[in-house]
Structure formats: structure tokens, C-alpha cells
Amino acid sequence: MGLLHEFRQFTMKGSAVDMGVGVVLGAAFSGFIDSLVKDILLPPIGILYSKMNFENLHITLNGKHYSSLADAKEAGAVTVNYGLFITATVRFMIVLFVVFIVIRQINRWKKPHQHPLDAMTKKECPFCCTPIPTQAIICPNCSSSLKEESDNRERSGKPILRIK
């Protein structure tokens, strides 16, 4: 009973559900990228290089020449399929670029000074001018004590600039 209960709690947590959704979207995205590379990007490049089909680019290790990769495989020849490697590399670069763009956007959304709700829960350190939580008594960036500075300012009415 305990193991089943823990497993249910794990699957209901946001991170496990998010990971499952990510895997499903990744599989769908992979099919999309495969089609984009094979059907749209590589055919025009192949035409530029005298009607070359990237999937048929190969080197046979037995020294014989075959007109296509399918013919070489049918004959049982051992091949180095560098055309398929080129296709996989282009596919990988596209996926890598898209992941970079997505992570870049997520990081922009996470920056505290850009999120409107964080402005209400942040204050600026008087010493290093970085945003910090309003409840902070020591700045996590410059290690200045904010508690005694606020007490001194309240008593004198003047800002005190002291570097620690």
C-alpha cells in the first residue's frame, strides 16, 4: 500500500506530469523535424549539388560500387552511410536551435526584474543596487547588513553609505 501510494503521489506531482508531456511533445516534434529535413530542406540542397539524394550517399567497404544504398544493402555489402549522418546532423542542429530558443525564452520569463509580481516582493540593496527580497536583512549579493542600515536611517533621517 505504501509503495503504491508513493508512486501515485510521484506521478501527480507537476514535475512528473511535465516530464511526460515533454516526452510526448518531443516524439511529435521529432517526426516534424524528420519530415522538415528529409522532405523540405535537403531536396533543394541536393539539386544544388547535381541532383544528389543524401540518403544514397555511402561508401562500400568491399570496394564495389552500388547505385543506391538500398542496392548495397540488398547485396549485403558493408557500408558507411555518411548521407544518413549528414541528414541526422542537420536534424540535430535544428532541434538544438529550437531547444536553445525555448530555453532562452523561459529564462527571460524567469528573470525577477522582468516579472511584474516580483516588483512587489523585491527591494533594491542600497549598496550594490541589485534586487533582493523585501524581508532580507543581509544582501545575498554584497553581504551588506540591511537591518542596521535601516535602523540607522530611521534614527538620523539621512542615508548612510558604509561599505563592509
Rank of each mutant, 00 (worst) to 15 (best):
Thr87Glu: 11
Leu25Tyr: 12
Ile132Asp: 00
Ile138Lys: 03
Asp71Arg: 07
Ala136Tyr: 07
Gly46Ile: 01
Gln105Asn: 09
Leu41Asn: 01
Leu146Lys: 07
Thr60Trp: 02
Gly157Gln: 03
Lys13Met: 12
Thr121Ala: 14
His113Asp: 14
Val80Ser: 11
Met93Trp: 08
Phe29Ser: 08
Ser50Gln: 08
Glu154Arg: 04
Ala70Met: 06
Phe10Asn: 09
Leu36Glu: 06
His113Phe: 09
Leu84Met: 05
Val17Glu: 09
Ala70Gly: 01
Leu25Thr: 11
Cys125Glu: 12
Glu124Phe: 08
Asp18Lys: 13
Met52Phe: 07
Ala88Tyr: 03
Lys158Ala: 04
Tyr66Val: 04
Val90Phe: 13
Ile103Gln: 09
Val98Arg: 02
Arg104Val: 00
Tyr82Asp: 04
Ser68Glu: 09
Lys51Thr: 06
Ser156Gln: 06
Val80Cys: 06
Asn62Gly: 08
Ser15Tyr: 10
Cys129Asp: 07
His65Leu: 11
Lys122His: 14
Val37Glu: 01
Thr130His: 09
Cys129Asn: 13
Ser143Cys: 12
Gly22His: 12
Gly31Tyr: 13
Ile137Ala: 06
Lys111Arg: 09
Ala88Gly: 00
Lys111Ser: 01
Ala28Pro: 04
Asp118Cys: 14
His113Lys: 03
Thr134Phe: 02
Asp18Cys: 12
Leu36Ala: 10
Gly31Ala: 11
Gly76His: 04
Ile106Arg: 07
Met19Phe: 15
Pro159Cys: 02
Phe7Ala: 11
Ile137Asp: 07
Gly22Ser: 14
Tyr49His: 03
Glu148His: 09
Ala88Asn: 08
Gln135Ile: 10
Asn62Phe: 07
Leu4Ala: 15
Glu55Ser: 01
Leu42Phe: 02
Leu117Asp: 14
Ala28Trp: 11
Cys139Ile: 05
Thr60Lys: 10
Leu36Val: 07
Val102Met: 12
Lys122Ala: 12
Ser50Gly: 03
Gly20Gln: 08
Thr79Pro: 01
Asp118Val: 05
Thr79Leu: 02
Lys38Ala: 06
Lys122Trp: 10
Lys110Asn: 08
Lys164Phe: 04
Pro126Asp: 06
Leu4Gly: 15
Lys13Gly: 15
Phe54Gly: 00
Leu48Asp: 01
Tyr66Lys: 04
Gln105Gly: 08
Asn56Pro: 00
Phe127Gly: 01
Leu3Ala: 12
Phe54Ala: 00
Met52Asn: 03
Tyr82Pro: 00
Ile101Arg: 10
Ser15Asn: 13
Glu74Ile: 10
Ile103Arg: 08
Ala70Ser: 06
Ser156Lys: 09
Ala70Ile: 12
